[in-house]
Design a protein around this nucleic acid. Structure first.
Lengths: 158, 158
DNA sequence: CCAATTAATCATCTCATCATGACGAACACA
DNA sequence: TGTGTTCGTCATGATGAGATGATTAATTGG
């Protein structure tokens, strides 16, 4: 009844949890503002469309990890702790999603039976490694408008 | 209390849902048995270690889709409806995971803003396409022992 | 037709994630 | 010192995936 159009349809495959996506959105917003003053939770909320108190908890977790710095009271808010081009997506989501797990076999057996090392399983490992590599090698700056622009120009794409 | 060591640790990242993995395990088992007679749910349960009634529902869903055939009563059970080398993983999991969704942007925006087509988002699309391609191009036979053996021999791997 | 067998279904339970509202704690500034 | 601002946290609720036990329905073989 109080439903605000649920963000994730049932059965939708997500790879990243909703919470991790919230974290990425918020951090990306902070990076794009490149603000001198901290941004308040309420402003970030409006910008990325995430429930206020929930986002607050997410941001606080990021602050505890040293990814953001937070300050209370007037003039308070959140800021990036470091450079956006040195902050990898994997770091941002690490507190929310256990990406290291699931490294194994598609079918959840710890290791593909030694009897049959199974070529397809190897291909699956390649796939899930691609996910991991993306998260570990892409920085927040790569996702910002300016970052993307730079990369595109650098590649000669119009 | 009655806990049988929960299959998925919290926060674990899962690309495929647990249910989809169950379906794959069961279908793979059926393919490996290559049985002339149908296999009963209880036998499949023991083989793949999945809760009995839950697996029953999963198998039934697969039967409704024409992937399996089911029969009740004595001599009843489940069988593959077609050939294992013509059955793609994507078909098996389609009823459980909406893999087509999430095709878009990492951050859930429907499309990356036209202003900034964002190179990193393109790379993310590549990643999720890799998952889709794997599921759409790999058959159940590719995952069976015999299938894997054949493929390995064919590649000259010892 | 009866009894055993096996899938199909139903009602319910647990749990983690996501979400919300209210309250407490720190901080800036007058 | 006090007041308003803003983060921090707690208690609680909603929802969907996963799981379980009991019951119903179909089928076979005697």
């Amino acid at each position: 009844m109080t439903n605000t159009t649920s963000p994730v349809p049932p059965n939708e495959i997500l790879i990243l949890s909703q919470t991790a996506v919230y974290a990425l959105k918020a951090v990306l917003h902070l990076a794009e503002q490149a603000a001198h003053a901290p941004l308040r939770v309420d402003d970030i909320t409006k910008a990325v469309g995430v429930p206020r108190n929930y986002l607050s908890k997410v941001l606080h977790a990021l602050a505890r990890e040293g990814i953001l710095v937070s300050a209370r009271g007037p003039k308070g808010g959140f800021q990036l702790a470091g450079r956006a081009d040195e902050l990898f997506l994997g770091e941002v989501i690490a507190q929310f999603d256990d990406i290291a797990a699931g490294s194994g076999c598609l079918l959840g057996r710890e290791r593909c039976s030694d009897e049959s090392p199974c070529a397809a399983h190897q291909r699956w490992r390649d796939v899930s490694n691609a996910v991991r590599q993306f998260l570990d090698q892409t920085t927040i700056a790569d996702l910002t408008h300016s970052g993307a622009r730079l990369e595109l120009e650098h590649l000669g794409v119009d």
